[in-house]
């Protein structure tokens, strides 16, 4: 039998590729297509079930309803703030790990930065709920000036949750910056600031873009963290969940979910222009 396959590499390739492709293309991409289709469906008033009765009402509601527009803008703002905060915090950390720390310390720092990624998401969000509590640790440390549950707490919690997703690609980006270029820059008389600005930053920018894909996309689809620390704040994913579960309106939920889908696809396309997708 192996002789049969040995002479037919195309058959072997076909056997290797068919199961994963069936799963990802038929089941997964098929589901995404169905999701897009259900956005045009109608809820049957009698049965409460979504039925394929074609209409544009759901999409029109998503585009025109000021509530949806406000929430979509708020979600975009949260995703962008989280991305900027993570980039600013991760930059010196990744810089230090890749270019300043000794190789032995580097391995230690890498494990130290990546390990929290695997601690339970809910445990971490819950920790921030405890931190932001009235009379909680942040309240005590700031002398009663904790922002409490709300939008700032949501941004901080999300930035915390996704920070390792920014540090790791950024570290890889710094690691690829040749030491010779830094030496050349210094030999030619550049100050530290000039070397960072004109040599390091342009070289690691695709890595920042790569990390930002995770921080942006993960923030855009999150409704758990905002429920835990956001008080009454609502993000897009809360609305989608509410339409599906509370209002039992699957078509409107599907229409709303096109917004994060489009946002992430547009973001991916924008980041691809920076070369972020090639060297990750």
């Amino acid at each position: 039998m192996s002789a049969y396959f040995a002479t037919r590499p195309r058959t072997r390739l076909g056997l290797l590729l068919t199961p994963p492709l069936l799963w990802l293309v038929v089941a997964y991409l098929g589901s995404i297509v169905l999701l897009l289709l259900t956005a045009f469906w109608t809820v049957n008033g009698f049965t409460g079930r979504a039925e394929p009765a074609f209409q544009f009402g759901n999409l029109v509601a998503v585009v025109t309803d000021p509530l949806y527009r406000d929430v979509a803008l708020r979600t975009l703002l949260v995703a962008l703030s989280v991305t900027v905060i993570d980039a600013v915090v991760a930059f010196p950390m990744a810089f230090y790990m890749a270019k300043i720390a000794s190789p032995r310390n580097r391995a230690f720092f890498l494990v130290a930065v990546t390990t929290p990624l695997w601690a339970s998401y809910l445990a971490k969000a819950y920790a921030w709920r405890v931190l932001f509590e009235p009379n909680g640790p942040i309240d005590i440390v700031t002398g009663g000036h904790s922002p409490g549950y709300g939008l700032p707490a949501t941004v901080v919690t999300l930035a915390y949750l996704w920070l390792p997703y920014m540090v790791i690609p950024l570290y890889a980006g710094f690691d690829r910056v040749p030491a010779s270029l830094l030496e050349a820059s210094a030999d030619l008389g550049a100050s530290t600031g000039r070397t960072v600005r004109s040599v390091v930053l342009p070289l690691v920018f695709p890595a920042i873009a790569a990390g930002s894909i995770f921080t942006f996309s993960l923030s855009f689809g999150d409704y758990i963290a905002v429920t835990i620390v956001g008080g009454k704040t609502q993000l897009l994913a809360n609305l989608i969940y509410g339409q599906l579960v509370t209002a039992n309106n699957q078509p409107l939920a599907a229409a709303l979910s096109i917004v994060p889908l489009l946002a992430v696809i547009l973001y991916l396309l924008a980041m691809r222009r920076t070369g972020a997708l090639e060297n990750v």
Partner: peptide
């Protein structure tokens, strides 16, 4: 294609699979 399910927001993947299952 393999990376798409974790690249897209979880809510999109979740709702898409829910639509197919139901």
């Amino acid at each position: 294609l393999v990376a798409l399910p974790i690249t897209l927001p979880g809510i999109v993947t979740g709702l898409a699979l829910f639509s197919t299952f139901s």
